[in-house]
Amino acid sequence: MSANTSSDRDATPCAYTDYREGAAAEDLPATGEDATGLEADIWDALYGIEDPEMPISIVDLGLIYGVYLEDDTVTVDMTLTYSGCPARDMLTEEVKAEVAAVDGVDDTDLRLVWSPEWTVEMVTERGEQALQEFGLSV
């Protein structure tokens, strides 16, 4: 899980990024820091969803790669820690339901994306604290 370490950090940021390549790794995970209005409400809803096995929000775990709002339609780009994740349906259904329940959201679309692949580097600082309190060393 320790791929994408030093060599990537030294790399020059890529000026051109398209959807196929996913967002540049240094911008991930998305955390909605600067979101306002309806978008901020959506991020609040996402923060409220916990990983099924650990007391950590899926946002702090680094699973959310993007939230895109167009009129009243929301698209969430999300990944999973590994491909055989048995909680896949449970988590994706929960994300769709929680986002759809936000006041002002009309339509929700969820895209599972796999690049760049999730590694433990995606966990936010707050996520690391939560995991440490839980007894995991990250």
């Binding site: 791929a3 196929r20 996913g22 590994y82 491909s83 994306v113 796999w114 690049s115 760049p116 692949e117 999730w118």
Partner: peptide, 11 residues
């Protein structure tokens, strides 16, 4: 396909 390959390869 391209999006999925990296994840599968690393596993």
């Amino acid at each position: 396909i391209a999006d999925r390959v990296g994840k599968i390869r690393s596993e």
